[in-house]
Write a protein that binds this DNA or RNA. Sequence first.
DNA 1: TCAACTTTGTGCATGTATTCACAAGGGCCT
DNA 2: AGGCCCTTGTGAATACATGCACAAAGTTGA
Lengths: 259, 259
Amino acid sequence: MTASAQQPQQGATAGSPAAAAVEPAVVPAAVKPRRGIPDATVARLPVYLRALHSLAESGTSTISSDALAAAAGVNSAKVRKDLSYLGSYGTRGVGYDVTYLVHQISRELGLTQRWAVAIVGIGNLGHALAKYGGFATRGFRVAALIDADRSRVGEWVNGVAVSHVDDMARVVREGEVSIAVIATPAGVAQDVCDRLVAAGVTSILNFAPTVLTVPAGVDLRKVDLSIELQILSFHEQRKASEVIAVGRLTLEGDERVST
Amino acid sequence: MTASAQQPQQGATAGSPAAAAVEPAVVPAAVKPRRGIPDATVARLPVYLRALHSLAESGTSTISSDALAAAAGVNSAKVRKDLSYLGSYGTRGVGYDVTYLVHQISRELGLTQRWAVAIVGIGNLGHALAKYGGFATRGFRVAALIDADRSRVGEWVNGVAVSHVDDMARVVREGEVSIAVIATPAGVAQDVCDRLVAAGVTSILNFAPTVLTVPAGVDLRKVDLSIELQILSFHEQRKASEVIAVGRLTLEGDERVST
DNA sequence: TCAACTTTGTGCATGTATTCACAAGGGCCT
DNA sequence: AGGCCCTTGTGAATACATGCACAAAGTTGA
């Protein structure tokens, strides 16, 4: 019941050890079999879902794990194992029904309802996020835009008016916002985060380049440009030094990788 | 030597199995002891680095793994193990010298040189990224802005002129760009990616909501807002259904988590 | 009806990451 | 000089994730 895994690569913190320790003693049978979908799988389901949506649009009605794997940039064993956590929704010898799979994954991800999202910090990035189409698409609607700069308050971005941060509690409550995106400067991010949590937000996506802390029960994920660049820098350097050490011996570079 | 791990939580693709299979037979001794820093560790080093920078600025000269762990939002065993991959740079009974650690981590991440970065797709997001301060800070400089829209070409953003995508090869070459950020619409991202690779870019950070494929030897990482939101949605839903099933029995919510 | 073919679902082996827990090392105080 | 206290560095246990490889289950065509 806490922070979710991140970038497998970017692992966040614990999942449910505290709760798991309590449940066996207290919880009714219905809950015990914990559908426990692994974090790594949860992180891939959205990728499958996107591929399936475009397949559905292009008229494909059935797809094999192999083809879906290719579209998602992973290998087919992973696809099958991932999907098996949702149940046995495939047909041997045939594959998976695209529309049905879309339903199942959507349901599992909680996309059958539309979550209200608030964006805090309407600077360059906040603007970009507010205008980003992928939001409205499915499952989410931008319910509030919040900024500390009074001169921005009242401005309309993509059909939503900017509110002042002092009204956050009210706006969050009235909009029934449960998910918030922080796009403020690093300095105020923790304060904003605390206020969001106090207002009832239970999931936060942080774009500010700083470490945030949230109480148990609140999920926190981060997106950090400079961390990503530094990781690339690491590999870039490694490649550079390897060229010196190894020369271009390994001409085996044939397979492609994807993300 | 391929795609790096992502969001441990967000795991990307394979690391070096292909190359690893070849090296033992061919590679000179100097390379064999593979400093093999785990991907998960590499992903955390930038976080430590940021914490250390602000510690240095606030005048702290020495820090324990415990304190650093708190600042980075992880546990101290992880900090110690991570740092131990770089060498034994701590002093027992005392901790780590902040300035020295900053040097070591920077070196390891390849931040002693300044990488030239190109941003492709100067829409809302591209603009936001170009203006983002965290770039210039350390290790990176925006060397090129590239867009397909001729009406945008020539525009200056943060001191850099926008070039047309047809000039990409030249701009990349002249600027000695090795890292590129893709902030285009999904539809053209793979094409842009292919052209970047052809022009000599060897590390790519993709913001477009689509799966990209690159040849071996090119590193690829992705940042995807809608995937992040969907992961949060999953946990949000889980929390909601658990409240129904369990009631509010578990009042144990005390520990905080961070990212 | 049956055999050949396709594709799923999963047990198992392997690889990677996290965490514990403690011995070894180093500073500091008396 | 010597002992106490603190903190590192790491072996070993555990947990999590990946990928192989194949039996089971379904379809198709004769």
